[in-house]
Write a protein that binds this DNA or RNA. Structure first.
Lengths: 242, 242
DNA sequence: CGCTATCTTGAGTAGCGTCAAGTCATGTGG
DNA sequence: CCACATGACTTGACGCTACTCAAGATAGCG
């Protein structure tokens, strides 16, 4: 508990230029002075405890949020109460891009574990990006990447079977952990079966059953939220045969 | 044929400031001089015949495309040949935003009828938007709107039943036609049942069956591609009861 | 007018959802 | 530190939705 508090303080002092995530986050490809300018506009670095909402649909949009550590889910709620998870976000990723369209957030963002985030006021970011073409361009790339990511989810939801969806999901997580320097084969799921199911358009029982089947087939070891990929090639093959 | 050619010439001469779509397209909210600056960077206005591809996945990304008239679909193809329609685009809408992320288009765009489009070189647009904050902001809104739209499709694909999906689809088309000054109750579908099905995560037979059911229930008149909404409220009610 | 693409409709089936019961993990208060 | 409550997960039985396969009708186009 004490060591955690210390860690938190250290991290919160870190600036973009010293952040290990700068190659994944907004500063990608910026020069030293450009990164310093970007640092200057970060409104505040703060923490978000597990279960806490970072923002809610309908609230006024003012800032984007870069995740320094931790794990979030975003979701939308339809009029009749239906809930759809629209994404899982981890360190180095930017949340809140959906809010620009109408000056209000259109989805909810909740922390799935204790998190640290950098709040970036959007008007300041637009202002700065007018002076820094490379920041401007990288910001456009990040928005575009979100669109491409969503197209991938549409493909998954629209034309994959349940097993293919879960295999795709696991391989995607694996690849993102690897890009952040973690093991691609061994990781903890931060979300429940129900949240996975919502994201993949499946019921939680189906997710559970398929985890069990993958386990039996020797593709993964599953112990609750602890996942070990035993045969990533097998998972990939599973997707290609639809 | 002759009258069509004349029409085409007239339209191609039109500039943004005189375009009836300026309230839906990039010039939204720009001043007169700003719109003129935007006009200056439009690379070319050209036509695209039915069945012709405007761009293909993998090709170098250079421009965005604003639709002046006509109808497009975009789709992605997975390694194994699976095809997923990711969107239908009509006049005033911008295509190609997905290409920014990697300097290459990530999906295919094909005209579903003869079209007229304005090609906007992206580097020029970034350049100009550095000088025109309102253009910059509106461009960001358009990208964000695309993300929000995709979230809506994810909700549809992830948690709606077949009938709800088709009802949502019809109401969405209706609303977009209305926003363009056309009848919200009477329109021609430009796409096949198979393309609708791909977009909605359904098979073409299912789409056909549900059209027939809607017809029997007095919700819509369906005569091939000609659609007449007879009871929009009924369609809306149908969605709310999932 | 005939060819082809598109659409409709039917019958049978597979895959995933629903409902239900029971197990396991987590955390809290006594 | 243990007992218990609560939420999360697993597994089974059954049912329904949407898919598959197939045949025939219709529309669009040369």
């Amino acid at each position: 508990m004490a060591s955690q508090a210390v860690l938190k303080t250290v991290n919160l002092k870190t600036v973009c230029s010293a952040c290990t995530l700068r190659e994944l986050c907004l500063p990608i490809g910026l020069s030293k002075t450009e990164v310093e300018a970007l640092e200057g506009l970060i409104y505040q670095r703060r923490t978000c405890r597990r279960g806490e909402h970072l923002y809610r649909a309908g609230l006024r949009f003012q800032s984007l949020y870069a995740i320094r550590s931790g794990f979030f889910k975003t979701y939308v709620i339809y009029e009749d109460g239906r809930e759809q998870v629209t994404g899982f976000y981890m360190m180095g990723e930017i949340m809140g891009l959906d809010g620009i369209s109408s000056d209000a957030h259109t989805c909810h963002a909740v922390a799935l574990e204790d998190c640290e985030i950098c709040e970036v006021p959007f008007d300041k970011l637009e202002e700065l990006s007018r002076d820094l073409p490379s920041l401007q361009h990288h910001f456009h790339k990040m928005m575009s990447r979100e669109i491409v990511r969503d197209h991938g989810v549409m493909l998954l939801l629209g034309s994959m079977k349940a097993e293919e969806r879960l295999a795709t999901f696991l391989l995607n997580l694996s690849q993102r952990f690897q890009a952040r320097g973690y093991s691609p084969d061994t990781f903890h799921l931060r979300m429940t079966r129900e949240e996975i199911g919502s994201y993949l358009g499946l019921k939680l029982e189906t997710v559970s059953r398929i985890f069990s089947k993958f386990h039996e087939d020797g593709l993964v070891n599953v112990q609750n939220k602890f996942i070990e990929l035993r045969n990533a090639a097998g998972l990939k093959r599973l997707i290609g045969e639809g």
